[in-house]
Design a protein around this nucleic acid. Sequence first.
DNA 1: TTGTAAGCGTTATCAC
DNA 2: GTGATAACGCTTACAA
Lengths: 345, 345
Amino acid sequence: MKRGSMNGQKPANIHDVAAHAGVSIKTVSRVLNREPNVTPKTRDRVLDAVQALSYRPNIFARSLASERSFIIGVIFDNPSAGYVAGIQYGALAKCREEGYHLLVEVFSEGEKDLGERVLTLVRESLLHGIIVTPPLSDSPEVLSALKESGTRFVRIAPERAMPDTLEVRIDDAKAAFDMTSHLIGLGHRRIGFIIGHPGHGAANQRFMGYKAALENAGIKLDPKLCVQGYFSYQSGMEAAERLLTLKNRPTAIFASNDDMAAAVLSTAHKHGLRTPEDLSVSGFDDTLIAQVVWPKLTTCRQPIAEMAAQAVSMLAQPPADKDAPKEALLEHELVIRESTAAPNA
Amino acid sequence: MKRGSMNGQKPANIHDVAAHAGVSIKTVSRVLNREPNVTPKTRDRVLDAVQALSYRPNIFARSLASERSFIIGVIFDNPSAGYVAGIQYGALAKCREEGYHLLVEVFSEGEKDLGERVLTLVRESLLHGIIVTPPLSDSPEVLSALKESGTRFVRIAPERAMPDTLEVRIDDAKAAFDMTSHLIGLGHRRIGFIIGHPGHGAANQRFMGYKAALENAGIKLDPKLCVQGYFSYQSGMEAAERLLTLKNRPTAIFASNDDMAAAVLSTAHKHGLRTPEDLSVSGFDDTLIAQVVWPKLTTCRQPIAEMAAQAVSMLAQPPADKDAPKEALLEHELVIRESTAAPNA
DNA sequence: TTGTAAGCGTTATCAC
DNA sequence: GTGATAACGCTTACAA
């Protein structure tokens, strides 16, 4: 057995490699970190030794000595499983490329000592950077703790802009505008809207987009048609209930995310309404649910994984780079499926 | 990344605390690690200093010096978003309790150098332990790499037992037995079964439970009624298609997970079959989808989060403890909803 | 181009 | 009980 592990042998360290290659540890370090000033020949000898001893640098020692960390953190507050999975998938792919690891933490916005906990996380584990997902990306406590810590962070889909802060987003207002326009194009005039969670950044933007599209088409906004939701399936059912029992009920409902849209479908069904014949329904996000419900949901695809990958890239960039873009704006895409059609079609 | 807070001040280290408290660094270390032999008075002085300087130990230095890590890894291969989220939720809660962090990594079983990558992960980042989720929990490459590395690991829902290995599971065979018996109790005799992914540990167990229940009720197994699936929505549609176009089609279909059961629902609908009047459908896992489809799925709840929490607990336990349980068996629970009823009801 | 030596912030080994 | 001092495995000035 060539590597020392099972049988109580300690794994090789940088000194072993140096000895095996007949060079100094500094040279090994240079090779490993791709620093200049190493002859190809020396480099090969070192690489051979690394191979032979199956050496892997100790990440803790590296971090301790260099004051850099190779771990990127991502923090969540309970969003949908599909959203979490999408973010992680994208972040992990890029992390692998860039040589980082991904540490996950969940915080709930309500909890005591939220700022304190965030500080502990970044300080104790010396994160290289941190990805902040909504609704945490607009939490004052989280944000000020992060600022105080000096750790670089990227906010995903934040509502409010912040100076000197990295952001990744789509144009939520434009996306909602497009979706609403799609409905209007189909011939709908009475379009219900289920607003997202009040604290969630993108929620407001989407609402704005909806209103702008109505105005653009010369349709007067009916406040009765706009009801508050919280991005949860449950809240979607309650909102749908209110909209569908209206005297003059809408012919289409645009929900701010897929979970709520799925709830609308189910509620409409319960009321004996067919989709899309009697009621068109559209969602937002294009998570798995959109394709699993019947009929399949018309929705707006948000490139969640790419957003996370982008966030990792920004973090991987050297902070000194003044010219690096501070904000990345990614493209959304309307996905027209079977849940929307012309009214009374 | 530099750790200094905004104003360029470096965070306090153990020497600062020692100086502030007028003791040696060893004493500070003792207090922090709850070692004996410290007078209450000294202890309080140290604690005050910690507070005053808002000191947090550097996790890298700690790990380097003690050869212990405070990070637990969890590795996935692409399972459903609901499953991933459930595992992480449970693991994180327990990690917080026990003072660990959670590092996530995704591997795909097909990829080259899988074992090599697993080795690198545990060695490079010196994980305290690692949680292996299915289907990785039965991957020979992953398992042998882990054994070789000497890192402690817990397998979630493995199919094959391994000596001297930690495991957390439910009794999948019993659960499938119960579900099948529920269907039989309703009056069904022709019960279709969609088998899970061949490489996935629990899949076989569930199939065994199905067969045992039939035998127990004196029903002869019809091989035509058992079709292979892969746990994906897509594979569920194909399997359902085959079952529903059978000359003598089943009056109930039991799919090995919720995603496939949702696909059965949709396929049945397409064939003009009503659920549960014309066809009963049941799933497994009780993920979000089970409650989002219409009608809501009868399924078997698997306590995913608790299983992950249990895994963290086992890892947190000192390895020397010979009497610590090597295997945890958690309870499943049948969740009867609207997708199952008596045939022709 | 390569090597020496001094940290990095902890824990651990002994003395006292 | 408490405290110097040496690891831990690496990076990085600074020499050579």
